[in-house]
């Protein structure tokens, strides 16, 4: 089996949407962690890293989620609900993952864990809001906690 994989999701040009990518960047720069975990950024295209997920016991996905309490960090062990085909150009991250798991037998035994940081909105800009920026260390710590869990 390959090491656990951490995937940061989100567009860094879209403000708080990039929270997952920002957390992944912090984790990727942790040399001690990098020796036992692979960390990548997939921006908004989960399918692009499909081949990186195979033969892993665990895959952790860090993403922004819209909600009422900005900066809140939560862990989901079941994927967020899939919202059907609402998009003309793209599939949502949960939909892409559901699709991959459905047609890729080797992914069915992999444990997927979502680390979600709540944001109130996302708009054009390369800065995180103060709430999202404050949440990044909490996200990083939750990821480390999950990775320590056997």
């Amino acid at each position: 089996m390959k090491p656990d994989l951490v995937i940061g999701l989100g567009n860094p040009l879209m403000g708080d949407d990039g929270a997952g990518a920002a957390a992944a960047e912090v984790l990727a720069n942790d040399r001690r962690l990098a020796r036992r975990v692979d960390v990548i950024s997939a921006d908004t295209d989960v399918l692009s890293c499909a081949n990186r997920m195979e033969r892993r016991r665990r895959v952790l996905l860090i993403d922004a989620v819209q909600g009422d309490v900005p900066g809140n960090v939560s862990v989901l062990r079941e994927s967020p609900s899939v919202d059907g085909q609402q998009h003309a150009h793209h599939l949502s991250a949960p939909a892409m993952l559901a699709l991959l798991r459905q047609v890729t037998p080797t992914l069915r035994d992999t444990e997927f864990i979502w680390i979600l940081v709540t944001v109130s909105s996302a708009s054009v800009g390369m800065q995180l809001s103060p709430e999202a920026a404050t949440a990044i260390p909490k996200v990083v710590e939750r990821v480390r906690q999950e990775l320590r869990r056997r």
């Binding site: 567009n11 949407d17 998009h87 944001v119």
Partner: peptide, 8 residues
Amino acid sequence: ISCSVHLI
């Protein structure tokens, strides 16, 4: 249209 942002 939708790829600039992808909030769940």
